[in-house]
Design a protein around this nucleic acid. Structure first.
Length: 463
RNA sequence: UCCCCGAUAGCUCAAUGGUAGAGCGGCCGGCUGUUAACCGGCAGGUUCUAGGUUCGAGCCCUAGUCGGGGAGCCA
């Protein structure tokens, strides 16, 4: 017995139109074992290929029944060979009548932390190397995978080029946000000049691939990046990570309206793909994690996003009669409570807020004709808040230079960014979507640390 | 970083300042085409750390560590 022609995943077995003929081999980790003195054992195993387990029926006549099979516990790994038959019991369509079961690895029940019972997410975070073996984290991993595939599918089908922007960057202020320093200088070598460092200058982990993506968009048209991003902010919330994955499309010959159109189509596409690609996992999230997520996603896919300007948003908030902890006034940024009111109470679905005051947004966002606002947009969703932030980029060199000066930035640090405007400038636009926040929204998972395998947060990088 | 809350058995949680408890899991036994099975028994504790108050502290006080919720920064 071993890896044979007849080896199947549990997903393949359970989704088969009819019970596969002949002998089949399946490998997996034991979830539960129920012994029957009547002469058999029911061994439920999972191999990650599907949410559902495969029930293996082991008869007492098997040679290793009492010596091994009767001693199986949660977490043991086994390889089972037998015939797939329709199950006489309720709860599963097919089961395996085992003819041979080999134990590959024992899992001492005294020490194995994943018991067949409810565990808190907090506890499972301390066992992140084993939590993939639970229902919830298996489902999250499959949804994350389906979403990643859908992201590439969306852009590829629309002619976007996937570009790999650098992880290590020398721009010391690509935007807001503290950066992680990258150095080979000795620890405590702050006295050594940066000229002695590996790159001969200070370098950091990227906080965004946007500027590099812009350079490729201004030459290749439509591009996107999809990779890790790093923020050294001391953020301790359920929606911030120090290392997260971001998707950043960038389009030449595109304005803010086109950018918002793309964002809306994009969000709808990936939610739709998750619903059709992971129905069993989504049913689990709907039942056990966040009641109503499936209906929420279906509704989002089917209905247009609301679009309002920042100025309209402020008016809505002022007229709302709601009491906010922070006052609403034109010119100051929208607080979480404001965003939540807009998307959860006033509109009840995703909303795209555009045209923010220039003073609260980045220098590269295009100045509108009113000279008071910039062509920026945020996509806000209920419960999570901002999942997309984007803008039309300032393509006029003189305006860009003036905006840099306003922000106290040194134009010489951005010489290559300015060159895009100096030589053959074009209107262009793009946005950034936080992968983990989008997974959070799609699954209903409350904490961002539970939608990435190994979360990096302040004072936490165990695995 | 700020505000609030928490830390007790492997896990989830109880316990008026006065002998540390339950459920689940584990071990032993019973029963059963079972479905996080069920029934009986047993074992399992430096009550986060360091100080302090008190005749006596899991409980009160101080500091710290870690975790959670909210806020800010943002995706």
């Amino acid at each position: 017995m071993g890896v044979s022609m007849n080896q199947m995943t549990i997903a393949e077995v359970l989704n088969a139109p009819a019970a596969p003929a002949g002998k089949t081999t399946v490998g997996g980790w034991v979830r539960t074992v129920r012994l029957s003195k009547g002469g058999f054992a029911f061994i439920a195993i999972n191999d990650g290929s599907s949410f559902d387990n495969l029930q293996i029926v082991a008869k007492a006549e098997l040679p290793n029944y009492s010596s091994e099979l009767a001693r199986l516990t949660a977490g043991c790994s086994i390889l089972a060979e037998g015939s797939i038959v329709e199950s006489p019991g309720s709860g599963q369509r097919f089961e395996m009548q085992a003819e041979e079961i080999r134990i590959l690895g024992w899992a001492d029940p005294a020490g194995y932390p994943i018991q067949p019972k409810h565990h808190t997410y907090e506890f499972l975070r301390t066992q992140a190397h084993l939590r993939a073996r639970t229902n919830t984290f298996g489902a999250v991993a499959r949804v994350r995978n389906a979403m990643s595939l859908a992201i590439h599918g969306f852009f590829q089908s629309r002619g976007f080029l996937y570009v790999h922007t650098p992880i290590i960057t020398a721009s010391d202020c690509e935007g807001a946000g503290q950066m992680f320093r990258v150095t080979t200088l000795p620890v405590g070598g702050g006295a050594l000049p940066a000229e002695e460092d590996f790159f001969g200058r200070p370098t950091f982990l990227t906080v965004s691939g946007q500027m590099e993506a812009e350079t490729y968009a201004c030459g290749l048209g439509k591009v996107y990046t999809f990779g890790p991003t790093f923020r050294a902010e001391n953020s301790n919330t359920a929606r911030h990570l120090a290392e997260f994955w971001m998707v950043e499309p960038e389009m030449a010959f595109c304005d803010l309206a086109g950018d918002a159109d793309l964002a809306e189509a994009f969000v709808k596409h990936i939610f739709s793909a998750v619903l059709t690609g992971c129905p069993r996992d989504m049913a689990f999230f709907d039942e056990r994690v966040e009641k109503g997520v499936v209906a929420t996603l279906e509704h989002i896919v089917a209905s247009p996003f609301e679009r309002i300007t920042y100025t309209q948003a402020v008016e809505i908030l002022e007229k709302s009669g709601q009491k906010f902890d922070y006052p609403v006034s034109w010119g100051s940024d929208l607080q979480s409570e404001h965003e939540r009111y807009l998307t959860e109470k006033h509109i009840g679905r995703p909303v795209i807020v555009t045209d923010y005051p220039r003073q609260i947004k980045a220098f590269y966002m295009r100045l509108n004709d009113d000279a008071k606002t910039v062509a920026a947009m945020d996509v806000l969703v209920p419960r999570i808040g901002e999942i997309i932030g984007g803008s039309q980029r300032e393509e006029r060199l003189d305006v860009l230079t003036a905006r840099m000066a306003e922000g106290g930035l040194k134009p010489e640090s951005y010489w290559w960014y300015a060159d895009l405007r100096r030589y053959g400038t074009v209107p262009h636009a793009g946005f950034g979507l936080g992968l983990e926040r989008t997974i959070q929204f799609a699954t209903g998972m409350a904490n961002i640390r539970d939608v990435i395998p190994y979360p990096r947060t302040p004072r936490s990088a165990e695995f």
